[in-house]
Design a protein around this nucleic acid. Sequence first.
DNA 1: AATAATTTGTAACATTTGTTACAAATGCAA
DNA 2: TTGCATTTGTAACAAATGTTACAAATTATT
Lengths: 223, 223
Amino acid sequence: MYQILLNSPLFKGLTIDELNDLFLHVKHQIRQFRNGEMLAQAGDEVDKAIILLEGRLQGEMVDFAGNSLKIEELDPPQMVAAAFLFGPKSLFPVYLSAKSDGKILVVTKKEFTAMLTLESRIMVNYLNIVSGKAQFLSGKINFLSLKTIREKVAFYLLQQMTHSGKKSLSIEQTQTNLSELFGVTRPSLSRTILEMEKQEILRWSRDLVTILDLKKLNEILGR
Amino acid sequence: MYQILLNSPLFKGLTIDELNDLFLHVKHQIRQFRNGEMLAQAGDEVDKAIILLEGRLQGEMVDFAGNSLKIEELDPPQMVAAAFLFGPKSLFPVYLSAKSDGKILVVTKKEFTAMLTLESRIMVNYLNIVSGKAQFLSGKINFLSLKTIREKVAFYLLQQMTHSGKKSLSIEQTQTNLSELFGVTRPSLSRTILEMEKQEILRWSRDLVTILDLKKLNEILGR
DNA sequence: AATAATTTGTAACATTTGTTACAAATGCAA
DNA sequence: TTGCATTTGTAACAAATGTTACAAATTATT
């Protein structure tokens, strides 16, 4: 178990001996789960820290309209619903179920809090996790508040460019995947891309995208 | 100063003596600022904890399209960019400027971390703040991923209802304000509301909204 | 009360995106 | 290669929302 936890964002930087020692003091529980099992429902109170040790979990954001329920998969050794353990409400945001057999590490909120107090490296790690989530969501909101498909494409490509630094991007995604990411239909995305090609802003052939006119791409987002 | 901090979410639960004692150990700085002054730009690294003591700050989310740049105002004794002090990047998300003369309390990230370690009540408070932000953003994303104006109206009203518990809601907002909140144009919102009135789902007169058919309202969101 | 400002209703039309369906192109495997 | 699956291009049409402009209703101000 400790070997797995060594790689987790939460316990990063600790040695295996320190981990070993830590869990002599921190009350915890190992729970097995089976494929298909329901672990938590949206709205349940979160009063335990859960870290996935083995297997695969899936959180289903039950999207009201029902049509595009977003699914987030979780692999070890990630923490479940990290940003929902504290806060004014502390309610599970998703329906959590198992995609395979596996194991989780369970620590009550009280013990978890004590652990953070005990070992400030873990506290900082946890703060990095939760803050990171908040920052990710903040970025996502920026993206979602873009109105036209053109804007979304431009934003996405410029973001990819700053990561790679090149004008030729190899998009590892099909247009079908991208359209889901953007929350639009596939033909509409295709149409928009073709328009942008006709306007010589970019060239998009399968998974290779070349930016032809960076200036225009920026103008789409108002510079 | 300590009197102000007593009411802050971060130092909630501490006595004035404890606060007094705390800041004997924690290095800090009080900084005056003047109306109109720029305190931070989007993209600046966040390496200090900033708590507003007096005056008024404003964060401008420079919205790419330029048209609807979102503005968030900050009143004492709130912490500035609380969810951006930790995390993998730690970059300021907004352009921060002063709307009046005032004072801020500045603590370096290092000292701030030490403070959290020193006093676990503050740590828990801070976790509640950051987690609360993440949860707020998560809810906002749910809202933004609603596609039609009907859905947004339904979601908004149902949310208001769970807060008040009544079928008659006094919306303290004009349709103009609401349309901005929803990210749609005012005539479009008006049209949608009128349609819903014709379908006897609700009655909307000025700032008083009565839900006539709760079932239909839920159906709009897929139950 | 009279006037002005704000808010809301309304309509014609443009734009964007969704829907559906099918064809063309490409990649993959037998 | 051949055949099949996946991905992408395309088009006609529907639906939703934006744009613009103005009228009506309401509220605030003098």
